[in-house]
Amino acid sequence: MSLAAEAFVSQIAAAEPWPESATLYQPLKEDQILLSDSASSLAVQTFLRMCGLPIQVTCRPNAEYMSPSGKVPFIHVGNQVVSELGPIVQFAKAKGNSLSDGLDDVQRAEMKAYMELVNNMLLTAELYIQWCDDSTASEISRPRYSSPYAWPLNHVLSYQKQWEVRKKMNAIGWAGKNLEQVYEDVSQCCQALSQRLGTQPYFFNKQPTELDALVFGHLFTILTTQLASDDLAEKVKAFSNLLSFCHRIEQTYFKEHDRESSGSSRHSKGSLP
């Protein structure tokens, strides 16, 4: 999102309170959504729950194309449409809901750096495994991605998507990597996160921030999603403090919430190992 668009969104957003009818759109949960989109969607849902903003989750086969940026998830609030975590955080802030207000400038810069790390490492690794690992691509990603479409459009669209992601991998220099190197990158990323987290409940001690939402979204999805092999989940499981971090956020923001308000917005998922 451009700076001008961002400014525009935050100006308009400030005028109205958060409506009850706010909706988050994502691809079909059972048949279509892929690891990376599922992780991003969970991160946004977690962030909104941490802010205490109600959201209904709606699955649409064309969610990706409905999104103004072409990426899922996106939220429809009032007559505003905002996609991806970064702009959604800005949008919520404009409406007076922020998790990072208590941080000083140094901490905020640090948070941004870690968020970039997660996006550059974990998200890219997820995309790499989905589309560049041939067995995962042919057994899971392509069939799931194209499930809403009729023959022969299903093949056209899934190969087009694969080609796009591979082009992106080429551009950022990941095309030459093999699966082992990608797992190694994931491990290093988790190592860094684990060290930063230490024994604190959240990354910046007592208060959750958008970084916590993002890390939880990715790690929890990696841990609970069945892939062609368990190697990726195993890399994360090596870090016990990250595991308990995921467990804690799930307990606090999903299990309890669901118990309190046998909610309209339920995120059903597997539980942690």
Binding site: N62, Y65, H76, N79, V81, A150, L153
Partner: peptide
Amino acid sequence: SFAVREESGHSL
């Protein structure tokens, strides 16, 4: 409008 946004995507 959101009604138009909902129609976005591919069809055959």
